[in-house]
Every structure is written in C-alpha cells, then in structure tokens.
Simulated scan of single mutants.
Amino acid sequence: MPRLLLFNKPMNVLSQFTDRGSPTKRSTLSDFIDIPGVYPAGRLDRDSEGLLLLTDDGRLQARIADPKFKLPKTYLVQVEGEPDDVAIAALANGVQLKDGLTRPARIERVDDPQLWPRDPPVRFRKTVPDTWLRLTITEGRNRQVRRMTAAVGHPTLRLVRWGINEWSLDGLSPGKWREVDPAR
C-alpha cells in the first residue's frame, strides 16, 4: 500500500531532504521527517509555508505534481494593500505573466485566518493595509501565486498552501506531519 504524508512545511525549510553544496546550513525535510523512501510530490518554495505531500509511490507522486492532472491547490495569501474588484476579477480570469496567461482561478477575500505566528514575522506598516485572500489554482508555475498578485499590484507578504485536492492542513501544526490513506 502506498504511503502518503501531509506535512506542514514551515517557512525557510527546503522542500528536499538534503542541501548539498550550500555554504551555509539550511533546514530541510530531514529535520522533520525520518521515514525512508518518501519524497515530495511537488514543491513549495523556501519562503512559503504550508501543505507539502510526500509519498513513496511514483504514480501517486506524478498524479499530484503533474500539471496535466490539474489538481486544485488552495493558498491563503496575505497581500499588500486592498485589491479592488478589478484586481480580484483579473486574478479570477487569468493574469498575463511573462510565461503566458494563467488559468482562471477561484478567489475570495477572507478575514484574517488566525494562523500560527511566522518566523520571521511579516513586516507591518501603519500606512499600508494588507488583505487576506483564498486563491485556488490548477497549475503550478514557478512562484505563480506571488507573480499573479504582483501583476495586479498587490505583492504577496505571506503565502500558506492550505490544501491540495481533498487534503488540507486542518489540525496540523507547523513542522508536524501525519499519514493518511492515499485512496480516500
């Protein structure tokens, strides 16, 4: 039976088990997970937090990570400023990036999701408000969510992947993981 782990990746942790060749020590998955034979299904940037799936099954890994399967990935995104309806519509309909138009996304403004504290904390500026969005995409270009919000004039301050398909971070603290049935 294939194994599937849900891991809440903290900020500044690489989505890999080793960090060979780096002149400075950086935190990796091996600092949190000691299960042989599991590998990340996809990636999550070092400066992003949240759900990372790991499996020992190559077919499952491909189904999760390959954009052709269009698995929805949901993010909680703290952006600088207050996006107006035009910016929200642009994110929903697709944003023109250097590597082409993004697929349409589901987006909504949300109240502060009351997440765990981030280390280091997000910078706070009295004169510039921030807004939380829930954004669901079905592709996974490099730094896509950050590039999308920047393209509509609202740079990302904090990015937390909350869910992939039916799997979510519900009840999972940063740096913790749990095993689930991949067939569910």
Rank of each mutant, 00 (worst) to 15 (best):
L14F: 04
Q16N: 06
F17A: 12
T18G: 09
T24R: 12
R26F: 07
R26Q: 15
S27C: 11
S27P: 07
T28C: 04
L29P: 01
S30D: 13
F32T: 07
I33Y: 02
D34N: 13
G37E: 07
V38N: 02
A41F: 01
G42P: 04
R43M: 02
R43A: 05
R43V: 01
D45H: 00
D45K: 00
T55F: 06
D56K: 05
R59A: 15
A65Q: 04
D66P: 06
P67S: 09
P67I: 15
P67Q: 10
K68P: 10
K73Y: 00
Q78R: 13
V79E: 01
V79Y: 01
E80K: 12
E80G: 13
G81W: 00
P83Q: 03
P83A: 03
D85I: 13
A87R: 01
G94S: 12
Q96I: 14
L97D: 12
K98N: 14
K98Y: 03
D99P: 03
G100D: 07
T102W: 00
R103W: 04
P104C: 12
A105M: 08
R106H: 14
E108L: 03
E108C: 10
P117A: 15
D119W: 07
R123C: 14
F124G: 12
K126W: 12
P129N: 11
T131E: 09
W132Y: 09
L135T: 01
L135P: 00
T136H: 04
N142H: 08
R143Y: 00
R146F: 02
R146Q: 09
H154S: 09
P155M: 09
T156W: 00
V160W: 00
R161W: 02
R161Y: 01
W167V: 13
G171I: 11
L172Q: 08
S173G: 11
S173E: 14
K176M: 13
W177D: 01
V180L: 05
D181M: 05
D181Y: 04
P182D: 15
P182S: 15
R184A: 15
R184Y: 07
